[in-house]
Amino acid sequence: MIVADKKPIEEIIEEIKDNQNILILGCNECVTVCEAGGKKEVGVLASALRMYFLNNGKEVKIDEVTLERQCDHEYLEEIREGIDKYDAVVSLACGVGVQFMAEKYHATPIYPGVNTCFLGATEERGLWTERCQACGQCILARTGGICPVSRCAKRVLNGPCGGSTSGHCEINKEVVCAWQLIIERLTNLGRLDDYEKLAPVKDWSSDRAGGPRKVIREDVQQ
């Protein structure tokens, strides 16, 4: 899933403080799972903002809505009817949802309420970690199912680098060395010989380097 983290409330206030009618718009997908932008977080943020404006003697109306998804036209249409009464929307969706909202509702300012962080997993409640950078050319078959692009600080494809110590990365002892994991995994699979296969220079044109990406699937287009 896409993992996001809450923005500091001061940053959100700075963006919206001059508005009178504000919609806090949550998303029921990834940001709900990572507890950054679901219905619960919409309620918490709305209450905190109401408190702030009340304490500052400002009359501001704050509404709360959480959509099934913000990255889907169908669900964004659900708020079309009332959108004009708001002079600002704070979207707690990932960056995709924020942009999709802005593309749909041209006259309404949309502000991000979260920082979109990475593609990751829930390791335990309150701990999410990165697993994928969406490079567009998956190499996991060669690396025992562990991704050096997202999990190595230097995205070394023929690792580990000289900074790997006791299974940890040179940047921080809390960070596990991806190549240590790859070697352990290849060992467990009886495939350590594969370690010596040189990974070729990678084609990054399917990564960020190639510009904005798209996937076209004619077989499912209507």
């Binding site: 023929n158 580990p160 000289g162 900074g163 790997s164 110590t165 006791s166 299974g167 060395c177 240590q180 070697i183 352990e184 060992t187 350590l192 370690y195 010596e196 040189l198």
Partner: peptide, 18 residues
């Protein structure tokens, strides 16, 4: 001396191959 020690020599072999 870096870890893991078991791949220090295979890693040298890989650099030579490169």
């Amino acid at each position: 001396f870096a870890d893991p020690f078991e791949i220090r020599v295979p890693r040298l072999a890989k650099k030579i191959a490169a």
